[in-house]
Amino acid sequence: MDDAEVKKISDLARLAVSENDLPLYRTQLSNIVHFVEKIASAETGGISPMAHPVSSALRMREDCITEGDERERFQSIAPSVEAGFYLVPQVIP
């Protein structure tokens, strides 16, 4: 993994990485990727992928309200709210 790749991944992951930290990430992530590449040698022809230990279909439930409007309760722990909205830095100039 080179610096450009680390930067691309950190952008996709929305994680700020400083120029100073790039070499460490490059080394550590490359080592981990190299380590997991061992799985390439497993013989998996005709094997279906296993996404989950429980292979049941999603359950259906009654179409009725179980919990009412809890906006106030949920927003009480938000960093910044106003008039029932979550506030973020201005998006549209």
């Binding site: 991944i9 994680l15 990430y25 992530l29 990727v33 997991v36 799985i39 390439a40 497993a42 992928p49």
Partner: peptide, 23 residues
Amino acid sequence: IMIGTYVLSSGYYDAYYLKAQKV
């Protein structure tokens, strides 16, 4: 988070994530 983003990113999914699910 970075490793997870990498193995799920375009071009790498089959070699890592799908392969891992098969193993």
